[in-house]
Write a protein that binds this DNA or RNA. Structure first.
Lengths: 325, 325
DNA sequence: TTGTAGGCGTTATCAT
DNA sequence: ATGATAACGCCTACAA
């Protein structure tokens, strides 16, 4: 609880000098610098972030928004891995993370309140008016899986369409012709793009071969049940997430089908469950931590480099063939 | 970017009055209150957290420490669920979370720098001298799975011993007599307590039936291989985590054993993988979000109520019987 | 009920 | 190279 004045007194200099030392100013003699540093250490002095923020108008904080009003919010394992990446990237660059928990204000309001230098948005609705406000305010912001675009706003995402394409190609090679998909919600970029990629890859497709889910297992289960009860059921299913794929496998089993014998299933994500599932899931691996690192590094660049171009980054995805196909 | 003075000017009052309005002071007439509120809304005014922190000496921030220097830090799925709980609890009470990412200082240093009101510690080493400093400093702190004890420091954890006991009882009922365990690291409370509970439940036990792992799958795999290569191998294994249990199942399989036919396996956590695994894992369900909520609510109580007693909380654990036993 | 003014702990400008 | 000192945006006695 020692302040700059105590340190100044103890080392026999003015507070201005102490401040200079802690800000790496070259205008300090090596002798005094050492003296100040020593005094500071003895008093366990640490500059107050609040005071600094007030005068510098920068907080060295990156805000993280992580809540979809509705569903299980940050429950999906995907977010944890991305968060790990964000943390690693911004931490290395001297920033800490502010995880908004208190829901009193709009995103912009909370950001301004804490004067965060930038924002990483992990699970927000594309049509949320709050998001638009952030872009307008030109607060540095990078979204994951959402095409934020603005002077200071960018995005990072996986190659969703390419992944879907690879899934279809893989299933084709395995001899499948009747390939259906359990797509994600049309409100999310991955949902949309994986479906588009799928469509482009299969060519003309009967409408009944496209079902929708919400990325969680339960929805994959019911979607698969609908697909399997068609008069001409698919022999392969491409699910837009591993959890939905697992739900689909379960539905297949209950219908007396063997996987991959009677039905092949491909997921997306390569979440931890994928490898442990029965059978181990063939899936498209996203570089989740990589997305996080990219997002984190990008906001910081946006914050620190005046003319930096907002990111519009696509990370590659990798087909991991396991037992479900 | 509007400050309190702009709002004051716009609504024709002094900044003191604006401040009173935003702090719920009763010494403001309803008329002016409305006028001020209106003005503030028009200007999108939000009080600066930095300025507030400076004068109030409280930040409305709860710090979260989440890194074990070594291993995959917050990689384990357990932490995500706990974090969800913490976020929900503190958010509802008007606090936000500060996730330390920048590793320049000690925990205490970072806490003081940001003037966080309290700390939730999710994955720290019991012997870390930094932790001791926090306790001494009497900064409100609650740890998960670590028996922090001090005037303002407490802890929450699951009923590890009870869970281990339930696992053994369950295996006994299934007819098993040769029961081994893959314990967690002796440096972590859950590792120690689950092993103690196991020992107490089985009575005398041959030393070779106790192996150690680090909670992750790979370590469970190798531990199980050692157990299965004994001249008198166990017919059942209690693993201190689901991931290790899954590793054990894999080892059994490679040894040509069927689960649960030749070898029964019980895990701990009920992580998402448990239900999806092959076979679905019998395990002890921890209320992970509950741990987080308890920790979050407890720190806030420690912060807001001067005489509050530090928590020393044990949450119940539930046996979930599935296909692996 | 409302306003004035000092201070919270720093940084940064101007002097010296 | 170092020292005064005015902000930074807000809260809170103390006055009115």
């Amino acid at each position: 609880v020692a302040g700059i004045r105590e340190v100044a007194a103890r080392s026999g200099v003015s507070i201005a000098t102490v401040s200079r030392v802690f800000n790496g100013s070259p205008r300090v003699s090596e002798a005094t610098r050492q003296r100040v540093l020593a005094g500071a250490r003895e008093l366990d002095y640490v500059p107050s972030a609040a005071a600094r923020t007030l005068v510098r108008r920068r907080s060295q904080l990156i805000g993280v928004v992580l809540d979809t009003g509705g569903h299980a919010e940050l429950q999906h394992p995907f977010f944890q891995d991305v968060l790990v990446g964000v943390k690693a990237a911004v931490g290395g660059l001297g920033y800490d993370l502010l995880l908004f928990a208190n829901e009193r204000h709009t995103y912009l309001g909370r950001a301004l309140q804490h004067r965060v230098d930038g924002l990483v948005m992990l699970s927000v609705d594309a049509h949320d008016p709050d998001v638009a406000r952030i872009v307008e305010a030109e607060l540095p912001a990078v979204a994951v899986d959402l095409k934020l675009a603005g002077a200071k706003a960018g995005w990072v995402s996986s190659d969703n369409a390419g992944g879907a394409h690879a899934a279809v190609r893989h299933l084709r090679e395995r001899g499948h012709r009747r390939i259906a998909t359990i797509a994600g919600p049309g409100t999310h970029l991955p949902g949309v793009e994986r479906l588009e990629g799928f469509r482009a890859a299969v060519g003309r497709i009967r409408k009944s071969y496209v079902e929708h889910g919400d990325f969680y297992a339960e929805s994959g289960y019911s979607a698969a049940r609908r697909l399997l009860s068609l008069r001409d059921p698919p022999t392969a299913i491409f699910a837009a997430s591993d959890l939905m794929a697992i739900g689909a496998v379960q539905a297949a089993r209950e219908a007396g089908l063997r996987v991959p014998g009677d039905l092949a299933v491909v997921g997306f994500d390569d979440a931890a469950v994928a490898a442990a599932a029965d059978p181990p899931l063939t899936t498209l691996r996203q570089d989740k931590a990589g997305l996080g690192r990219a997002a984190g590094a990008a906001v910081v660049r946006l914050v620190e480099e005046p003319g930096a171009a907002p990111p519009a980054l696509r990370l590659p995805v990798q087909l991991v063939v396991r037992g479900s196909t």
